[in-house]
Design a protein around this nucleic acid. Structure first.
Length: 302
DNA sequence: ATGACTACTTCATTTACGTCA
DNA sequence: CCTGACGTAAATGAAGTAGTC
């Protein structure tokens, strides 16, 4: 039932054409969060917005909600007084029920008899007709889920006003809306983690492969070096050098330096100094370099 | 200015329930 | 019908921020 990455709108595309050439099936990842215009500007009244790494992504979670059990039956319709009761409480945090009753966090953390009674009545009051304290897990209707998804696409956190409005609109308790957003954020994060994990796995595989290839190349070069007749014919050993400006491997000294960015020979003097090739360091120093090297080879900027 | 306290939020984790194969 | 797997609503606790005194 769990939708795959695409279903959750977490399809990623890394935009590394060179990598696609190498392994076309491998990376269509896009780790940049999708544009959610209202995300960064979302104004949380109390706390500085804590935007997750990945903003809500797509509407495809809607596709997920197509199971037969939904069938349009709204099992969660609560009497409007349930919403209003919580509205009157003025808050709807996870602890709102308690804090609105006790008024003190410390008391909330130390449940007492009233606590239990209040919890069961406020959380499942309208749901638990039989009056026992067991929580009833209720399915949200297709429509409710759709609206919540739409709202989540706009902003993945809610301020109290939005929460109340949404709850009223959906006929849910604000607490339910809040929990839904909480769980939705968790699902988004989980999916993103899975995608990131997969991506790093691919990076690791590619690095391993590259390492294997380089080891082999090194072995071959050593063999050639030990071969006397070949050794005599060889031009002086060259080390890979890299242009610090354009990050291309520099041509051998016999060749004219090329200005890759403009596809013409480098100018001499000042420009030449600027583009003086430095020894190529095979090990990338930043994660970005790793990714670039993995995906784009030696010259990711091209 | 500073610290204690309160009220509120978020996230991570766990629990419990509904559905399906 | 039973059962285990899975998805998810809800509960819980910890930690953080902001306002007030």
């Amino acid at each position: 039932m769990m939708a795959d990455h695409q279903d959750l709108g977490l399809s990623l595309s890394l935009n590394f054409p060179a990598a696609a050439d190498r392994n076309p099936a491998s990376l269509q990842l896009n780790l940049t969060p999708p544009l959610v215009p209202s995300c960064p500007s979302f104004n949380h009244p109390v706390r500085t917005p804590n935007w997750p790494d990945s903003c809500p992504t797509s509407s495809d979670a809607l596709k997920v909600e197509t199971r037969s059990f939904l069938k349009g039956i709204d099992v969660n319709r609560v009497p409007t007084n349930a919403v209003e009761a919580e509205e009157e409480a003025g808050v709807s945090s996870p602890n709102s029920t308690i804090s609105s009753i006790s008024g003190k966090r410390s008391e909330r953390d130390l449940p007492n008899e009233n606590d239990v009674v209040e919890r069961s009545s406020s959380r499942g009051g309208s749901d638990d007709e039989d009056g026992d304290n067991s929580r009833k897990k209720l399915r949200l209707s297709k429509d409710q889920s759709a609206v919540l998804e739409e709202s989540f696409k706009e902003h993945n956190t809610l301020n109290p006003k939005q929460k109340l409005a949404l709850a009223k609109r959906l006929g849910l308790r604000p607490r339910q809306v809040e929990v839904w957003f909480q769980n939705r954020r968790a699902r988004t994060k989980l999916k993103q983690t899975e995608v990131d994990c997969e991506f790093l796995k691919r990076c690791c595989e590619n690095l391993t492969e590259e390492n294997r290839r380089l080891q082999k190349e090194l072995q071959e070069l050593r063999a050639l070096k030990l071969s006397p007749q070949f050794y005599m014919q060889m031009t002086p050993p060259t080390t890979l050098t890299m242009c610090p400006s354009c990050e291309r491997v520099a041509p051998p000294p016999s060749e004219k330096p090329i200005d890759h960015q403009h596809n013409r020979p480098h100018l001499t003097t000042a420009n030449q100094i600027h583009h003086r090739a430095l020894p190529f360091h095979p090990w990338p120093t930043t994660a970005n370099q790793i990714v670039q090297r993995q995906m784009g080879g030696l010259h990711p900027r091209s």
